[in-house]
Amino acid sequence: MTMQVTMTVNGEEVSREIEPRLLLVHFLRDEIGLTGTHWGCDTSNCGVCVVLLDGVPAKSCTVLAAMAGGHEIQTVEGMAQGGTLHPVQEGFFQEHGLQCGFCTPAMMLTAQALLEVNPDPSTTEIREAIYGTACRCTGYENIVRAIRWAAEHPALEEVTA
């Protein structure tokens, strides 16, 4: 028994025939081929599967693709615009905000959402915002610095010159 689901992923409308039990993380990775969304604990604990659902961070292993129908999803693939990195991505690059990179898409999307509502967060606010995602490499210091870097460089032109 299948159903048709249509949603917007990174600004593009996508439509697939799926089983209702398909989780959003597998829809994005296996049906759409966007493997930037990672998949870890499968138990809604580790937070590596975070995507933005209507702009708000959500654990995609605990959302049905069917539930995302009609909504806007943004994944890490949707962060850079026309070949220009998002300030958060640039911050992770500048401040070595990643080691193995497994948690990085979730961390960056969470940071993007945070900066949209709070453009100048304190390090405490950053730590509170990201604690839904575990960094297995425990590189939290640099992740926090990377997000501060992005807060301090909202316009990319300032740094790429």
């Binding site: 809604s44 937070g47 975070v50 708000v56 961070p57 959500a58 654990k59 605990t62 959302v63 969470t110 509170e128 915002a129 604690y131 839904g132 995602t133």
Partner: peptide
């Protein structure tokens, strides 16, 4: 309660 991402849902 849980973490900020769980609290969003």
């Amino acid at each position: 309660i849980a973490d900020p991402v769980v609290r969003n849902r």
